[in-house]
Design a protein around this nucleic acid. Structure first.
Lengths: 340, 340
DNA sequence: TTGTATGCGTTATCAT
DNA sequence: ATGATAACGCATACAA
């Protein structure tokens, strides 16, 4: 029945040592302003001497606040998320909160179950690229503050990485290089970011007066990219924008395998800048600032936590084109080489 | 004071509806075997009707078990850790536990503080590549079960990725390719894996009858790799093993920048296989199976949790060489080109 | 400003 | 097999 924690001092021990009541010790930590300054210091000294730390579980039972934030991501192995998680954890830590991490493997059912499992312990949720239904999200939101990342549900605070700027700059960049027919390689169908990027490519191409082809996609990983290479070649586009960097690298591999050179034969642009300049050839990409998104999401959540009546917020984070080594002038004259 | 959870039914409501005492409701969930089968079903039915779920916080306060595992990593942005974290979370989830994640930015002080903050809520710890002192780790271990990953402290259960096999295979591979002078590019000085790999390179080189040069290093990132390129060239080694893949990529960048070609002029091998075959040129590397390590660590922790008297365990995970495209025969005759 | 008393939801001890 | 009740550690309404 007792705590399994050997020799963990409680408020009672501190009270005895400091010669005050347990209520005073409690106040010395949770509401020091109502106490005389010297009692606060006296109590704190006693606490320090014993190594006393308030027990968050007991606090939670009494206040309903657990000091825990939950963050759910669809795939931690996707390099887009780790920086976001790191930033979120750091922000939470600064606010004195700890972070519960859940990985759903893109499975909506698993996400829903996990959220249910965590609800009684978490003060709030950050749902990154959530795959749950709008109804499920709203149901959760009435029980706990929720902040969405890259998912746009009216009435739920959300931070969205707005690819529009970066994609437009990308298309203009490609147009300037003489490309007149470009392709968009889609990512997960349910992904908000995918829908947004697809639309941005389409519109920007119209504006720039060039042709845009939409190539289908389901998942976003290296394998899928490899397999998308033939379709890209068939499309006869001379440049492609991929849903993200991982997909782009897969495409690059598939193309190289078929003797097609990037960027000499086909220009390639990724999204999210997850690999930075860490690989050769360095990928031209649309930077997403995932870490900023993680920090912003936690900030939003903290606001909601201290003021549940906070108005609906929709934070848009900009993106920008980073030109590196996978874009070049459109191949002139000769057609793209095909394997035998 | 009250719970912030709207309309969360408690054991009392269920007891009233089922016409039993609160104790019986409790037993119906935590220890059903001592109850008559029909009462269990009756209570469960009442609970289901109300949507009752046991409150983990209250359980924790009473039992001392929180249903929470904490995992601390030095740098979540390092691609070695995300798969490990994902596997650990999955394993914990299967066991009905949630995962608290902490990121320390390689800062021992921050790690220590974080561990202190989390101790009252976590049932146990997985410390990945911990930077804390041995004493700090032991102190923690008397309060909570602890499992280490890639840190070797006697008496503390630990899982170690044993690079020896993979490194030996690497050195033999290089020797067969005609290399007679190879370099090891070190990583973080306090890293157990670094010490182990360095030693393995040294010994394997001796066995293979070739020369091994140790190049110093402090941190492991792309930048550091770039900056290490000149030293590598100065060493006149024709092949190099880097502490990890990220460092290797940085080195590759630095070399390419100076007009030195990989693998034509210099062969390069990474460690950990964090980028899989996802980049060109695909990196020859020593695979570390980080996900397996994460799963094994949680398994070890679960064992300790149910039996604290479990004997000291030291799990060694093997590694293997994956030959891809960055190793080739030693350049013959001509010396390595240097930039002007 | 500080102390007293009670409740938070559950488990476990001791009865019956 | 089941019920009554005392913890678990803390926060807060109320009293003083």
């Amino acid at each position: 029945m007792a705590s399994n924690d050997p020799a963990a001092p409680t408020i009672t021990n501190v009270a005895a040592l400091a010669g005050v009541s347990r209520a005073t010790v409690s106040r010395a930590f949770s509401n020091p302003r109502v106490l005389r300054a010297d009692t606060v210091t006296r109590v704190r000294a006693a606490a320090a001497e014993l190594g006393y730390v308030p027990n968050p579980t007991a606090q939670a039972l009494s206040t309903g606040r657990h000091g825990l934030l939950a963050m759910i991501v669809p795939d931690i192995a996707n390099p887009f998320f780790p920086p976001m998680i790191g930033a979120a954890q750091g922000r939470a830590e600064t606010a004195g909160l700890a972070l519960l991490l859940g990985n759903t493997d893109e499975d909506p059912a698993r996400e829903h179950t996990m959220v249910g499992r965590l609800t009684p312990q978490a003060d709030g949720f950050v749902l990154a690229a959530s795959r749950m239904t709008e109804k499920q999200i709203r149901d959760l939101a009435v029980r706990r503050p929720v902040v969405l990342v890259n998912r746009d549900v009216t009435g739920i605070p959300r931070v969205l990485v707005d690819s529009a700027d970066g994609v437009r700059a990308t298309v203009e960049h490609l147009a300037e290089l003489g490309h007149t027919r470009i392709a968009y390689l889609a990512g997960p169908a349910r992904s908000w970011a995918n829908a947004q990027r697809k639309k941005a490519v389409k519109r920007s191409a119209e504006r720039a007066g060039i042709e845009a082809i939409m190539l289908p996609g389901q998942v976003s990983n290296y394998e899928a990219g490899m397999q998308a290479a033939p379709a890209l070649l068939d499309s006869r586009a001379t440049a492609a924008v991929a849903f993200d960097d991982v997909l782009a690298h897969g495409v690059m591999a598939g193309l190289t395998q078929r003797g097609v050179s990037v960027p000499d034969d086909i220009s390639l642009v990724g999204c999210d800048d997850v690999l930075k300049a860490q690989v050769y050839p360095a990928l031209t990409t649309v930077s997403s600032h995932a870490a900023d998104a993680g920090a912003a999401a936690v900030d939003l959540l903290l606001q909601r936590l201290e003021n549940p009546e906070d108005p609906d917020r929709r934070v848009l984070l900009g993106t920008s084109l980073i030109v590196r080594a996978t874009t070049a002038r459109a191949a002139t004259g000769c057609t793209t080489r095909r394997p035998s």
